[in-house]
Amino acid sequence: MSELLDIFRALADPTRLRVVALLREMELAIGELAIVLDQSQPRVSRHVRILAEAGLVERRREGSWVFLRIAREGAVGGLIDQAKDWPFSPQEARIIAHDARRLQAIRTERMAVAERYFAEHAEEWDAIRSRHVAESEVEAAMLAMMHNRRLGHLLDIGTGTGRMAEIFAPTARRITALDRSPEMLRIARAKLVEQPVPIDLVQGDFLALPMESASIDSIIIHQALHFAHEPDRVVAESARVLRGGGHLLVVDFAPHEDEELRTRAAHARLGFSDAQIRGWFASNGILLENTQTLEGGELAVKLWLGRRRSDEDQSPQAHDGEGQRKRLAA
């Protein structure tokens, strides 16, 4: 009962109701909220603290920014989902509509920042893309390889601009897009705001994923593994958070000798072989189900799809079946 009272006390303020209405639309930084509400940051921070203490709002730090979102777990999420049906007075409804119009300016500014970033880095990205098959072909191959597989809660490791989250959103139930760079996450946030599924943007390290073990249904690592000095540890961390029967798709370059990518683009590894990926998968309970090579240009792009072993894979029947397949193959 005390928890419920805390929730209603937190909501018993016009400004905090406006905050909740805004955060239902999109994640916002404290400074962005202050702009929309036309209030000082300290005052907005005080309201946010009350909402957070009541379990209504979650805070997440990305570099020097703190982003806010509505808590989605438990009874709070269900309560806030009904906010559109709350009996707002005509004056309150006008204020919320006014805030929504000001919120559009925040969306516009985010997109402008994203466009400036793309323009500044277009030459660098185009130089890398020109060395391999068209990205559209890579994406088509990825979608085909994951077709008819249950994505569920998808983790996009090294999301960058959020492109993988964007193309897999129509078939996932929920997406967590992870990147170390706060700048990249802000770009992705602007790009992904209109997607049809919940997308959580999380700052984190692929060597220490901020998720519980066996909590993720599927994982994509697209052109991010080559940045790892210890890629075997990235695979191990991915396997840790992947549930039994879940899929891991790694997309990266085949082995090459283009040292310029190491010196100019910070690639720690110059591609990976099938044997390397198969070994790392096997060491972490992942069965390599499918591979594909996309030729075209100086660099070949590889797709490796693995499935996390489940309890069924450990059953005597599964071992008998595997032994029979080996005997037939021999």
Rank of each mutant, 00 (worst) to 15 (best):
A29K: 14
T293I: 08
R43H: 11
E92Q: 12
D38S: 12
S136L: 12
N290Y: 09
T291R: 06
T15W: 05
Q41L: 13
T293H: 08
A265E: 05
R24W: 09
I128V: 14
E166P: 01
R325A: 09
H247M: 13
L242M: 02
S283L: 06
A254C: 09
R243E: 12
I106W: 04
Q223T: 06
A127I: 03
L5G: 00
E139H: 14
F88P: 08
E183S: 12
S310I: 01
Y117Q: 08
R43A: 10
E115G: 03
F67T: 14
R180T: 02
Q39E: 10
A254S: 05
R59D: 02
A127E: 12
L154N: 02
L201A: 03
P198R: 12
P210V: 10
D99N: 07
P90N: 04
A208R: 11
V113F: 14
M145E: 05
A21R: 04
P14A: 13
E260M: 10
L28G: 02
A10V: 09
A127H: 09
D85C: 01
G246W: 03
Q292P: 01
A177F: 06
I96H: 05
R46A: 08
T159D: 01
E312G: 11
E194H: 13
E183V: 15
W125Q: 07
R243D: 07
P87S: 04
V48T: 08
E230K: 14
E139P: 00
L103W: 00
H147R: 14
I216E: 02
D13K: 01
H229L: 09
A275S: 14
V113M: 15
L287Q: 14
G162F: 02
E139R: 15
M111F: 11
R278M: 12
H256V: 10
